[in-house]
């Protein structure tokens, strides 16, 4: 499948590569999340190992409700608008796609960029799917770091790399 954003043609394969490629930290995150307008926030900038692609990571956690969080990866192309490739959400509420499929409500879910949506030019990551990969902000961050290939992540997120999953079946 192909989609267009400005002058670049994207394919599903390219989107997968953008998500999973090894990435170097260009601008590290703050040691502590800072509170801003009702949420804990942190950000970092990444570059693909070969230097071709630029990314940013956003981490947000609601100050009032710890379970309402978002951790995401945005791609910043040389030309055209930046867009979100992957977004790990806490169970903040329902999603229209989950409603349509009568899936359970208020669950941890992941939004992934989709070629068709990218072609529309907005909210490329609309599709939400339920996940059992994490059950807290900390677990979500640990999952996210592995999923998006952040290199030397132990330097920037030591507590999230070394922390084993409490309910891991295979001792991941």
């Amino acid at each position: 499948m192909e989609g267009k954003n400005a002058m670049v043609t994207y394919t599903s394969e390219l989107l997968s590569s953008l998500i999973s490629c090894k990435k170097k930290v260009v601008k590290p995150p703050h040691k502590e999340m800072k509170i801003e307008r009702g949420s804990f926030r942190n950000d970092l900038s990444l570059k693909s190992e070969d230097g071709k692609w630029n990314f940013s990571v956003f981490m947000r956690k609601n100050q009032k409700f710890a379970e309402n969080f978002i951790i995401g990866l945005r791609y910043h192309p040389q030309e055209g608008e930046s867009f979100t490739l992957l977004r790990c959400n806490g169970p903040h509420g329902n999603h229209i796609d989950l409603e349509r499929t009568n899936s359970s409500h208020y669950v941890f879910h992941i939004h992934m960029a989709n070629i068709d949506r990218l072609n529309d030019g907005v909210f490329s990551e609309r599709m939400g799917t339920i996940t059992d990969k994490y059950a807290s902000y900390e677990e979500a961050l640990s999952y996210f770091i592995r999923e998006v290939g952040i290199m030397d992540a132990d330097q920037f997120f030591p507590e999230y790399i070394t922390q084993p999953s409490l309910f891991s079946e295979e001792g991941e």
Partner: peptide
């Protein structure tokens, strides 16, 4: 596609009801 985060805060000792988003929109 995410549902809007809208909350209703019931006052403990009478008073007005608050309809709010607890910072979710700006987050």
């Amino acid at each position: 596609g995410d549902m809007m985060d809208i909350f209703i805060e019931i006052p403990k000792n009478g008073g007005k009801i608050k309809v709010c988003d607890f910072g979710m929109t700006l987050m």
